[in-house]
Structures are given as C-alpha cells and as structure tokens.
C-alpha cells in the first residue's frame, strides 16, 4: 500500500512539475526568444529567428515594436495566430483538438508504470 502511494506520488510530482514548467514565464521578453518560437512563412523549415527572408526580417521589427508597446508574450503570439493561423507558433496549444497530442505520452507513461507495478508487486 505504501509502495503504491510512493509510486503514485512520483507520477503526480512529474505531472505537477510539467504544469509548473509550462506556466512559468521567463522574465526576459526579447525579440530573439519570441522569434525562435515562430515559423517563417517563406522558408517554412526555419524559425523566424534563423530565417533571413524578408518576411522574417519584417517580423522581427514588428515583434520589437510590440514589445516596446508593452505587449506581453502571450498577446504577441495571439495576435500572430490571429493573422496567420496556429501554424505559425511552434508551441501547440492546450486545447481540445491537441488533447491527444499532450495526453498520449503521459497516458502511455502511466500505463507503463502500471505494467511494471504488476510485474513487481502482484504475485
């Protein structure tokens, strides 16, 4: 019984840490940081940070302006998603259609844990 509790708490710890990591924002708001998270529409395999296309260069100036206007990181991403679609941001959202994306590995992990639990604890 105690072992099961320890086991479950390990899993909960991991899941909670995930939450913390995703919620926490780095204090520094920079053009570089945001542009690394955006995809270039012209050179579609590169991020806006890496790309030297006209679009990417203009985009970096735009982001700089928005930061100076005082917009938050989330506001900038939302604005761009509204203009160009979710595709432009490398970080998939936590919404219904991406549910399987985020849940699948975690569910698999818990399932694997249960398999091991069975192998080790149940006679």
């Amino acid at each position: 019984m105690i072992r099961l509790i320890k086991f479950i708490s390990l899993i909960l710890f991991l899941i909670l840490s995930l939450q913390k990591l995703s919620n926490a924002n780095n204090n520094s708001l920079s053009v570089d940081k945001i542009s690394k998270n955006l995809r270039c529409l012209i050179c579609q395999g590169q991020s806006v940070y890496d790309s030297q296309s006209d679009f990417a260069i203009s985009m970096k100036i735009l982001i700089d302006n928005k930061i100076k206007e005082g917009k938050s990181e989330k506001q900038i991403y939302d604005y761009l998603k509204n203009q160009y679609g979710e595709w432009i941001v490398y970080d998939p959202e936590f919404n219904k259609k991406n549910l399987i994306l985020w849940a699948f590995p975690l569910i698999l992990f818990i399932f694997g844990g249960l398999l091991i639990y069975r192998k080790v604890f149940i006679n």
């Binding site: 840490s17 995703s22 998270n37 432009i88 490398y90 959202e93 259609k97 991406n98």
Partner: peptide, 27 residues
Amino acid sequence: YPIFLEVIANEKISIGPPFFNKLLIPF
C-alpha cells in the same frame, strides 16, 4: 501528430522545441 490533425480535422499546427522540452525535460 500534425499529419493526423491535418487528415482528420483539416487543420495545420506546428510542433517544435517548446513541446518536446516541456514533455521530456521533467522526466
């Protein structure tokens, strides 16, 4: 996943470093 989403829901999303970092680093 982007392939599945596109075929089933006809939507395009991108999955990049933030996703992988969030799911891998804690473990």
